[in-house]
Computed example of a mutant assay.
Amino acid sequence: MASIVSFEDLAGAVRGLPPSCGPVRVVAVDGPGGSGKTTFAGRLARALGAQVIHSDDFPVPWDEPPVTWFRQVEEQVLGPLAAGRPGGYRRYEWAAGTFTDWVDVPVAPVLLLEGVSTARRTAPAAFTVWVEAPAELRLARALARDGASYAPQWREWMRAEEEWFAADGTRSRADLLLDGAAIPGEFVRIQPS
């Protein structure tokens, strides 16, 4: 029987984990684009009273594998946190193609990283979540958000994601597997096979 994830129970479990990045417990919410990662991370962050850093806050090139953007997170956020110091970054505005406001990232008990490739092997994550949904649904969600004119970029991006996840083994290492295709805002735990 499938079970709906309780955000309060998950928040309690995360709080009980040892820190993974200096004094901070990093929770990485990963999975392919359009699977429901942002919605899940937002709900978990509210339950934890934690900050979320989204991959969409950084310039992630369409024509590169979903890996290069993470260097900025490592240098500007994770490196300082690992040393017990606050981090921060300048948020990227996709529509304008420019960097905008400064985001402070204080040393806190928990920080969520949300986006494609956040649970990579090298991430200092105390807990990793994999959110998935069927490709057709993910593409429909992405195009509803970004516009139909982005269909060619999204199809290429989805191919690059598949290659990245296969090479990194992201799903197989996740602490929690979730189906993001359920009723909006609900996440069903996938039982390991």
Rank of each mutant, 00 (worst) to 15 (best):
W154S: 08
P65T: 13
P18S: 12
G180V: 05
P61K: 05
P124R: 05
E156N: 09
L176D: 05
L111A: 02
M158Y: 08
P65S: 14
S149N: 08
E132R: 08
A142V: 15
V60W: 10
L178R: 00
P61L: 06
V27Y: 08
A47C: 08
D104H: 14
D30Q: 01
A108Q: 15
S172E: 15
V73T: 06
A119L: 05
P18M: 10
A2D: 11
P32A: 11
R120Y: 02
V107S: 10
W69Q: 03
P124F: 03
R145M: 08
A182S: 13
A133H: 01
R120T: 10
P86W: 07
G16F: 12
L44E: 04
L177N: 01
G84Y: 09
A142K: 03
D175P: 02
E136S: 12
S20T: 06
K37G: 01
D168W: 04
V60E: 13
F127K: 00
A82T: 06
E162L: 14
V27W: 11
S3D: 14
R141F: 14
P80Y: 03
V105H: 06
A174Y: 01
R15N: 11
G12I: 08
R91A: 09
A160S: 14
G147Q: 06
G12R: 15
S6N: 11
V5Q: 07
V188S: 04
E186T: 15
P65K: 10
A123W: 10
G34Q: 02
L137N: 04
Q191M: 12
P124E: 09
A166Q: 11
A47F: 07
S172L: 14
R25K: 10
V103Q: 11
A108V: 10
E162A: 12
E8Q: 14
G88K: 05
R138H: 09
A140H: 13
A181I: 06
S193H: 13
P184S: 00
G31C: 07
E64G: 01
L143H: 03
A181E: 12
C21I: 07
F187G: 01
A166T: 14
L143W: 11
